[in-house]
């Protein structure tokens, strides 16, 4: 059996990689890619805690499904915003998107 610690360390590493992407990429789409990695690492933790706790309590999997739905909503809105900004400003570099109104 795989110990619980392996899952947790794997998820922590994936979360850190995603955080590095969020903090250091210039392209707004790449920042959203990093956020996806972070959400996935959280889901690994939820599934692992479901499996290593009482498997008859489905809260871990239910919460992972809620995270799926929220991630889909977040990506849809985020990419729509990026495309809208690109259409009016001709840029997707996060540093250059610095106006509240155009």
């Amino acid at each position: 059996m795989v110990p619980l610690s392996w899952y947790l360390i794997f998820a922590a590493a994936l979360f850190s990689i995603g955080m590095f992407g969020v903090l250091s990429r210039r392209n707004a789409v790449a920042i959203l890619l990093g956020i996806e990695l972070m959400l996935n690492s959280v889901n690994i933790n939820l599934a692992a805690f479901w499996r290593y706790g009482d498997v008859h309590l489905m809260a871990g999997q239910v919460f992972a499904i809620i995270v799926f739905a929220v991630a889909a909503a977040e990506v849809a809105v985020g990419l729509a915003l990026v495309i809208s900004v690109y259409r009016s400003r001709r840029t997707v570099v996060a540093d250059e998107i610095d106006m509240m109104k155009w």
Partner: peptide
Amino acid sequence: PQMNKNWWFGAVLAVLTFGGLYFLL
């Protein structure tokens, strides 16, 4: 460049986050 000029700060923060989580666990 695909990375912003503070990318090293992001890298340090990511490594610190991983180290902190590892220590906590």
